[in-house]
Write a protein that binds this DNA or RNA. Structure first.
Lengths: 203, 203
DNA sequence: CGCCAAATTTGAACGATGTTCAATATAAAA
DNA sequence: TTTTATATTGAACATCGTTCAAATTTGGCG
């Protein structure tokens, strides 16, 4: 019943090329950050001519969006795994679950630092494709669901806004903390500060 | 008793050139964002040859750092003015003051959006010059002082960390909110969400 | 297999961009 | 005025992303 009718030989090759390109791009970003993504390097990595890249992706922005989509998918999987199975009936349980998701966010950002940073350093000039938005929405369920138990009086609309506020707050702490600038939260205190922030905001 | 002995004719001109360059750069960033800073445009703006820019600043990174320093100075002035005169003896007063500083941060970011964004979009490849760090430290006093009244049991060290956490949290909400991506806090709710966050975290 | 048409791949070329530096112009000193 | 030091210039360079006419490969048909 699969409705992908004819994976023609060309389409198969295109998928291989796309996969190789995304893997090469990820490897380079992991190593040296988003600024190190050069068209010529990537073309050499996957064994096509320079112009051949533009048979696989529309341009570098398109490539970055696709890399970001993969990263978001991994982040979503990490959040899902962290929250999976944790009970959420009482307030305290929901709060624990929320803290767990926040800690998972920090852990993910630390372990995939440069790819995670890329999520926020790529600013799209044109409008985002639809699939890029769905990636983000999926993530927010891991926050909105526990939060609805913790703040049952909020309207659905207010709850959505509050979930975004909470995410943005934790995100800010992680982001500035991992920048390691002068005025950042020290790395070895990020865990406990995020724990405090989440509990203080929701308690 | 001023110990700047001889503002020689050359030095005066250099100051004029530097001022003109920074003003031109600010104007361009205000209009079109940091990505629109082009060496050739700026040289034309202030009426020097392309290579002449490098007699005024070391390179584009240097220029951006100096523009950021000016922005931070304006931000600091705005925070100082907002907090100035507000009492800070009781917990409630200190909290009000903290909320006021947070709102000021949001207001500043909105009105100087592209220059404010530039503060966090410019990555320094080399080490920051000393004067760039002092700008940041000054800002934190506006948070750490009220916070010491609100959380008197924290050690000085913990207080510093907590002030950074709080700033980062508010910063995250402002940043993601002003991005206007799909999952951001709506603009017209930013004020009240920041108010909630600050009071919830400190209450 | 042999051939042609269609599609794909190639890499040279183009326009931006930041930066350098020998040559020129300007200012200071003698 | 002549000489020396300094500042300014702008052509040249390296490095980007992107394009596109030409070369190559692929796929069907006799």
């Amino acid at each position: 019943m699969s409705d992908t009718p004819s994976p023609s030989k060309l389409e198969l090759r295109r998928e291989k090329q796309m996969e190789a390109l995304l893997a090469a791009a990820e490897a380079r970003v992991r190593q040296d950050g988003v600024a190190s993504l050069k068209a010529r390097d990537l073309a050499a990595d996957i064994g096509v001519a320079l112009g051949g890249l533009y048979n696989i992706v529309a341009d570098m922005d398109d490539l970055m969006l696709r890399v970001n989509s993969r990263t978001l998918a991994r982040l979503g999987a990490a959040a899902a795994q962290a929250a999976d199975g944790l009970p959420m009936t009482t307030r305290a349980e929901a709060l624990d679950r929320l803290v767990m998701v926040a800690q998972t966010y920090l852990r993910f950002a630390r372990s995939d630092l440069k790819l995670w940073r890329m999520l926020f350093e790529t600013h799209v000039t044109s409008a985002l494709p639809a699939w890029a938005n769905e990636d983000q929405l999926r993530l927010f369920r891991h926050i909105a669901e526990p939060l609805s138990v913790i703040m049952p009086d909020l309207s659905p609309d207010a709850l959505t806004v509050r979930a975004r506020t909470l995410f943005a707050a934790v995100h800010g702490v992680v982001m500035l903390g991992l920048e390691e600038r002068l005025v950042a939260v020290p790395l070895d205190r990020l865990d406990s500060e995020i724990d405090w922030l989440t509990r203080a905001a929701c308690g």
